[in-house]
Amino acid sequence: MIRKLTAADHDQVFSFLKKEAAINLFIIGDIEAFGYDQDFQELWGEFDENGMLKAVLLRFYDSYIPYAPSTFDVNGFAEIIRSNDGVVRLSGKSEVVEQFENVDGLSLGKKRVTYFCECNTISFTDEDEAYDVKLATVNDVDRIVELRRRISEFTATPASREMLLKSLETNTGRTYYIEEDGQMVSSVSTTAENSLSAMVVGVCTDERYRQRGYASVIMKKVVKDYIRAGKTLCLFYDNPKAGRIYKRLGFYDIGTWTMYG
């Protein structure tokens, strides 16, 4: 049986999602931030005959994330997703979301698969760094956006500034940075921060300041701050070279994450 979830289901939902807290950090974060009664966010649960939760589906605006540790009613969730006209923005644990590829009537859009990794220990030597890593505030949003615009690998969207500002205002994300001569030259951000974990995003360095180890220094600071706060850090990567850098900092692969749209 599939039905809408409400605040009355929260304890069971949270216990269910915590079993794979890293994989479920987006669902957990959105529930903690916005609850069960918003027009832009809905949650559904599939229950077995004993009333035990088997699967969860999150809608956040026009994006959907399903989660299930084993078999679930793919067609039932697909029927809910189909009610949203147009190309579906679907993402999640690869073993879960790739089952929707065989469902008729879903326009999933372009597929992208990335590695999903996590870090929950400090595995490097805690030594004094040569560079001063600063924590951004809402007053730094335009400087962060400007740094990203200078970097060819980044695509700035009209919503980028608003999303960054919202994360800083709601404490669901942080940005750490290094500056030279008053200019921000390297930064690392987190997003979807919740009581258990956070996602690393926006790792970037101005092309003129690369090969100086700035990003690695910032990443060490990020790892230390979150791990000492008892939180797991997660990130996506599809570049093996970047993956090796992250693994030297204590990250390890826990699966793959597939996105459509």
Results as ranks from 00 to 15, higher is better:
residue 142 D to W: 01
residue 78 A to L: 05
residue 61 Y to D: 10
residue 151 I to A: 02
residue 72 F to K: 13
residue 136 A to E: 00
residue 109 G to V: 09
residue 148 R to T: 04
residue 88 V to T: 02
residue 129 E to L: 14
residue 67 Y to T: 11
residue 75 N to H: 10
residue 83 S to F: 04
residue 79 E to H: 15
residue 67 Y to S: 06
residue 60 F to M: 09
residue 149 R to L: 03
residue 110 K to N: 06
residue 157 T to K: 15
residue 64 Y to Q: 08
residue 98 E to R: 08
residue 133 V to K: 00
residue 148 R to Y: 09
residue 123 S to P: 00
residue 60 F to C: 12
residue 84 N to W: 11
residue 123 S to F: 01
residue 122 I to L: 04
residue 72 F to I: 11
residue 154 F to E: 07
residue 110 K to L: 11
residue 154 F to H: 05
residue 113 V to E: 14
residue 156 A to D: 04
residue 77 F to C: 09
residue 148 R to Q: 08
residue 151 I to K: 00
residue 141 V to D: 03
residue 120 N to Q: 12
residue 123 S to G: 12
residue 97 V to S: 03
residue 65 I to F: 13
residue 155 T to C: 06
residue 83 S to E: 15
residue 68 A to G: 13
residue 155 T to V: 15
residue 139 N to C: 03
residue 154 F to D: 09
residue 75 N to R: 13
residue 145 V to L: 14
residue 109 G to K: 10
residue 143 R to A: 11
residue 143 R to C: 01
residue 106 L to P: 10
residue 146 E to G: 05
residue 139 N to Y: 09
residue 79 E to S: 15
residue 99 Q to E: 06
residue 67 Y to C: 08
residue 123 S to T: 15
residue 62 D to M: 03
residue 150 R to N: 07
residue 69 P to F: 00
residue 122 I to Q: 03
residue 121 T to C: 04
residue 92 G to M: 02
residue 79 E to P: 12
residue 125 T to G: 05
residue 147 L to E: 10
residue 73 D to E: 07
residue 101 E to G: 02
residue 72 F to C: 10
residue 94 S to H: 07
residue 104 D to N: 11
residue 73 D to L: 11
residue 85 D to T: 01
residue 141 V to E: 05
residue 129 E to G: 06
residue 156 A to C: 06
residue 121 T to E: 10
residue 137 T to E: 10
residue 72 F to N: 05
residue 118 E to F: 07
residue 63 S to C: 10
residue 109 G to W: 09
residue 119 C to R: 08
residue 126 D to Q: 14
residue 73 D to I: 04
residue 123 S to C: 13
residue 132 D to M: 08
residue 143 R to K: 14
residue 132 D to I: 15
residue 75 N to C: 08
residue 92 G to F: 00
residue 70 S to D: 15
residue 95 E to S: 09
residue 143 R to I: 01
residue 79 E to M: 13
residue 108 L to E: 00
residue 103 V to N: 08
residue 66 P to T: 11
residue 61 Y to L: 06
residue 109 G to L: 10
residue 152 S to N: 08
residue 60 F to D: 06
residue 68 A to Q: 13
residue 100 F to S: 07
residue 101 E to S: 01
residue 66 P to L: 11
residue 142 D to Q: 09
residue 74 V to C: 07
residue 105 G to N: 12
residue 123 S to Y: 01
residue 137 T to R: 06
residue 137 T to S: 15
residue 93 K to D: 04
residue 102 N to P: 00
residue 70 S to K: 15
residue 101 E to C: 06
residue 60 F to K: 15
residue 122 I to Y: 02
residue 95 E to G: 09
residue 150 R to W: 00
residue 104 D to C: 03
residue 155 T to D: 04
residue 93 K to L: 02
residue 148 R to G: 05
residue 101 E to M: 06
residue 128 D to H: 15
residue 101 E to L: 11
residue 74 V to P: 02
residue 83 S to M: 12
residue 141 V to R: 05
residue 126 D to W: 02
residue 144 I to V: 07
residue 86 G to S: 14
residue 137 T to W: 12
residue 122 I to A: 04
residue 157 T to V: 05
